[in-house]
Design a protein around this nucleic acid. Structure first.
Lengths: 349, 349
DNA sequence: CTCAGTTATTGTAACGATTCAGAGTGGTCC
DNA sequence: GGACCACTCTGAATCGTTACAATAACTGAG
């Protein structure tokens, strides 16, 4: 062996390994690794020499090897329903900030409300042996995620309460959000409410609707009609609003509670544009999420705000704990939403 | 050695390795690997036996080990300026679809227009030894990307022409886009155009403005005034529009060309809302990007469309070629934009 | 001068998948 | 019956990093 020691080629430009660094600095690979991971146990002069070699060779740690050895990566996978939705980007931001404190990274994948894409992303993250998964699932992932958890990859549901006690989740009380919105509208004297959002297959949507109905049921002549949309985009809101406009004026709702702000803005524009209705005089509108757009809409939008960044932060914190100790009990955290009142319900001043 | 052969523990639930699979199926690890990678050279019965073992053990390939051996990952890193911008998510979509054809994955990172975050993401992807990088850089990444390329990690600039011949890029001809928009507005008889967008430090913005001016210069009494905004959001458009509204009516432009659709929608809302102006009668508006919102605005927006998904596709295709053959010449692809005419310039019907 | 006790460094065995030279089997052809 | 081929499969080496036991070099204490 020692007679045929490999010359270990000069190494392509940027692909120096720890071994090249060791050779250059005149130390062993173990020492280089120590400089990288526990510099405190290495003599200062040696640390300096190794750093010099690293700089000269442009050495960059190979994370694949590191992971292989460690068994786990230091990346957290985040699968969101829709990257375009500011709600999720804010959650992502909160998660990233929290993760960065521990030197963890967050990478984002977009399922775009497609169960197939979602499954593909989870597959990918599984092969990557990510530290854990943060997800707002579209399909029924419960069983799969429990299996993953058992296999050492914890998952935390985001913006969804776990259907099972076996998984952690960080969500916002959507029933309460629905109550807040409806209570506000009812308090303004509106009686014919419509909930515009969907698909109602989404738990969040069902809960918001249920909360609203709960409030309306407490008032004799009040009711909440459900206008289901296939998605939660801008265009879905428009379409739903056009449907409502097609009705005789007397049968239209006098208040609309939208499944999210994008839908609300779509509704708003269609009602004011095509419908020439006045908001809030003819119809009051409450959105959900309180995205930036909400306050900047033609008529600033009243909306139910969720602590988005805190959701991301909390989810990462739980994930970290579960990754460190798999036997820990799953936790379900539920935040309270908050109503932000603007001109779309109370007019000016 | 053979006397002390490791019992190789039953393996924790989901963490079976290729070795466990081999043992279970009664074949060698090499065969399992072949079943995974070149099933055609393995006897059908063996393939079936191995697959059964895989299913029984819930085996999932460890990508870190795979990468380590291969030297490169099969993941493409995508760093975008702003995940919320539908332009980038569409580019991402195009990239993902193209990549998926080759079994490659795309992961997205958001620099949020911060050079620090951008650098951190590039660092991360570098340690990951990604197959390549797709990015719309904010800071001056030229030098760094050239070094990465030399080290075997090609990068393709997206939505930006490379400042250097040493890097590939896929962009859209923004000067032409500016020409299209201005030509259209001038053709409608408008003479006092305003370009609303910015910051003008962004190459894209300068080019669009330059294209518009080029057209206007060909017509005696036409001119294009630049109204610079600090960013490209909704609110930036609103603010700029309010400024214009503050002027005496005679000094207001009769047509506005916005740096992107978000700005255009902000302008639109402020002009119609606060300003009570009619669009397009009093002021015609052309946006840029043709995002979904554009066609769904209060007044559907005329806009300059860029082939977003094709940009992503093309970028991946170039990246793949460069990854396969590092000596290949960098290419600069420039697509032509296209004008989509809607009610914000030509009114109804 | 030896021995214990630090402190700094080395060398090597993993981690899991892939690759590739080689071995075993069976069939065909002369 | 031997040579040759095709087809399957095996087993070991390898990728770059980390952890850990072993060693080396020194410092005082007795």
């Amino acid at each position: 062996m020692s007679s045929t020691r490999t010359p270990h080629v000069p190494a392509a430009p940027g692909s120096a390994s720890i071994r090249d660094v060791a050779e250059r600095a005149g130390v062993s690979v173990g020492t280089v690794s120590n400089v990288l991971n526990r510099p405190d146990i290495v003599r200062a002069a040696t640390v300096e020499r190794v750093h010099a070699a690293i700089r000269e060779l442009g050495f960059v740690r190979n994370d694949a090897a590191r992971q292989l050895r460690a068994g786990r990566s230091t990346t957290i996978g985040l699968v969101v329903l829709d990257v375009r939705n500011p709600f999720f980007t804010d959650v992502a931001r909160g998660a990233e900030d929290e993760a960065a404190q521990d030197g963890l990274s967050v990478v984002m994948a977009n399922s775009d409300e497609s169960p197939e894409r979602e499954a593909a992303h989870v597959d990918y993250f599984e092969t990557q042996r990510v530290l854990g998964l943060l997800m707002s699932p579209i399909g029924d992932m419960g069983e799969r995620l429990e299996r993953l958890r058992a296999a050492g990859t914890p998952a935390v549901l985001v913006d969804r309460t776990a259907g099972t006690r076996a998984l952690s989740s960080v969500a916002v009380d959507d029933v309460e959000g629905g109550r807040l919105a409806a209570r506000h509208l009812l308090g303004l004297g509106r009686r014919r409410l419509a909930f515009v959002g969907g698909p109602l297959g989404l738990e969040q949507m069902r809960d918001r609707l249920a909360g609203a109905r709960e409030e309306a049921d407490a008032i004799p002549d009040a009711r909440v009609e459900a206008v289901e949309t296939p998605g939660l985009g801008f265009a879905d809101g428009r379409r739903a609003a056009l449907e409502l406009l097609a009705r005789p004026a007397g049968e239209r709702p006098d208040a609309i509670f939208a499944g999210n702000d994008l839908v609300a803005i779509g509704v708003l524009q269609a009602l004011m544009g095509e419908g020439s209705l006045r908001v809030p005089e003819d119809v009051a509108i409450v959105g959900y999420d309180d995205i930036d757009f909400a306050s900047a809409a033609v008529v600033p939008l009243s909306s139910v705000r969720q602590p988005r960044e805190r959701i991301g932060q909390t989810a990462v914190r739980i994930l970290r704990e579960e990754a460190a100790d798999p036997s820990i009990e799953p936790r379900q955290v539920v935040f309270k939403p908050e109503l932000v009142v603007r001109a779309s319900t109370v007019g000016r001043g």
